[in-house]
Design a protein around this nucleic acid. Structure first.
Lengths: 341, 341
DNA sequence: ATTAAATCTTTACTCCCGTAAAATTTTCTC
DNA sequence: GAGAAAATTTTACGGGAGTAAAGATTTAAT
């Protein structure tokens, strides 16, 4: 194995005895060359592990194989899980996923979009920050890159994939009303459209059932939802100002904080005898099953959202963005009954 | 604002009336040009928002401004938090951080390393999978890219930054022994060197205090530590085979699972009267403060680890890798006393 | 004002690969 | 085995910026 520094495709062409244009074709799509040629290339590849230079590849390609993924906050398990799935699917399809997190900051989101744009990606999957997004910047980005928006339905891009808040929230509201006192709603700070939709869906569902909706808006900013749930929860419990013993939180992370608040205030959570509060969430975050008690919630279909987003994007990349309508696909949630409510 | 398609640096040189090589210098380091020149460039930049093409930039640079970050599992909050900090620091220093997650899989780790290598990064910060890493592949990577290894001290790369398990574990063992029954140790699957070090540190600390160390190895593979802690915990509690009422877990995620197990089995956790178990963890994961009861643990210094890793890497990039010794910097943990133990 | 140093411009070459067109070879079909 | 179709090679150019060297200009120092 005389590995004499195979750095360029020309070098590799020499030792593999295949012309460079053919190699180029092969690396673009291994199936596009004759079987015997492919075998020759691959046997040479085993001996000398050459990889084309990504920068050089993309610099001169009309359509790169890069796919950008931009999320508002990667440390949120919802996004880390979604990203994980999206990434794997992109890799399987021969694309090169590259992940950016805005870390909750507009500046970083803009930065990520600008960087991504200069990468000339084949497409992008973005979950905008929402309220704190620089709308014009995001819009501008989506005008030059085929983009699927997911999770947070900011009205840009060529399609949206998310979850159906107007199905999932009524689902759990209905359950909670059937099994005990109608819930009040602990709302997260309205950082994105989901926050508002969930509140509206709650109100609608309660009214539909003939109950009086009671919304509590938690103060606080940023992405520390557990913290917000904890602080607000402790305050509400101390002040005895919870309008209902059943509390539906607009997401699991708030609920996790609220459960902690109840614990710290000595209130027992659950639907059994001797329980003072019922707490439910929304999303079925990865660690919602480990709260004490385990959290009753509505599961967002992570897999479906990831898969559909990727599929939609591939479709977009292939067929272009001819259609003027901006399809919105939303998935239903599934009730996950545990012990907290 | 006649934005006549400024696509290339040549275009931008024309409208800004600065020569292209000077522009190139500017984009590489804004401070490297005269103040008046810089002002001219930046005012032009405001009018025509031009950005150099990343691919073209990196293709022909000796040293790119790319920095690769590879972690074993991005959905683990420890890594998402560390990555967040590292990313921000790289950006501030004018580098382009690019994050890869192995998602727990050797194949993806190799893939990430190979991709990263073909990006010719200025340097890399990697936390190897550990046991399931392809050691030779990782080693080979580190031989061609200046690399700082963090968290998991796999013996490759030019430096290591992590936490001092032989300080942090004795710290909490000592606390637990002082305040109640000496702890047994619930060990996570030995996926990386940390797992083993923590166990060894526990044994050493217990022996130093004249106690009999008792190690329980949890079965299970993969990165679902909470799940492993929960299952194993339920099993141990049901079988009444916990060797001590005090349990030190090798990380917080296991502890979170174990607390859930105790809850589900009706055992009260804490150090107060009426508590059946004391549970402690290690790391101070972001959500350890929200468990019920809040988790007593040892905090790893996320900031210090991130900062030192980045600093070390920048140092390496600047001064080359002349020194033959492989410095290992470890940070002490701090006891975080909450209610669980 | 005079020099020296620092900075900028011009010119020209390089990086590694994409891609198009024409010429050649291989494979397939009947 | 002839002819057509498919794949490959040859040749050549281009992408967008890095970078080196030499000469011109500006700035700082004396």
């Amino acid at each position: 194995m005389a590995e004499d520094k195979i750095r360029t495709m020309d070098d590799f062409a020499r030792i593999s005895e295949i012309s460079r244009p053919t190699l180029s074709k092969y690396f673009h799509d291994p199936d596009s060359v004759r079987k015997t040629t492919r075998a020759k290339i691959e046997s040479a590849l085993e001996e000398y592990d050459y990889r084309p230079n990504i920068f050089a590849i993309n610099q001169n390609r009309k359509l790169t194989k890069t796919i950008g993924i931009v999320v508002p906050y990667l440390a949120d398990p919802f996004f880390s899980e979604i990203v994980r799935r999206i990434e794997c699917q992109c890799i399987d399809a021969g694309y090169w996923p590259i992940v950016f997190s805005a870390h909750g900051q507009q500046g970083l989101e803009n930065n990520a979009l600008a960087t991504l744009q200069s990468l000339r990606p084949a497409g992008a999957l973005i979950a905008p920050l929402g309220r704190s997004s620089d709308f014009e910047a995001v819009k501008k980005f989506t005008e030059s890159v085929p983009t699927v928006v997911f999770d947070s339905n900011v009205k840009v891009g060529k399609a949206f994939v998310g979850s159906n808040n107007f199905q999932s929230i009524p689902l759990i509201v209905d359950y909670l009303c059937r099994t005990g006192e109608p819930p009040c709603f602990l709302e997260m700070p309205p950082i994105n459209p989901n926050a508002n939709k969930r509140r509206d869906a709650y109100i609608q569902a309660m009214e539909g059932l003939g109950h009086d909706p009671k919304v509590i808006r938690a103060e606080g900013t940023g992405w520390s939802f557990e913290q917000i749930g904890l602080e607000e929860g402790k305050r509400l419990i101390s002040a005895r100002s919870l309008p209902s013993e059943t509390i539906l939180c607009s997401n699991d992370r708030m609920a996790i904080g609220l459960i902690a608040a109840a614990y710290q205030k000595g209130l027992r959570v659950g639907h059994g005898p001797g329980c003072a509060l019922r707490i439910a969430g929304h999303d079925d975050h990865p660690w919602s099953q480990f709260t004490c008690p385990p959290l009753t919630t509505v599961a967002q279909d992570f897999n479906a959202i990831a898969t559909k987003s990727v599929e939609t994007l591939f479709h977009l990349i292939k067929d272009g963005c001819d259609n003027q309508d901006r399809p919105e696909v939303v998935f239903d949630g599934k009730l996950v009954l545990r012990q907290s409510a």
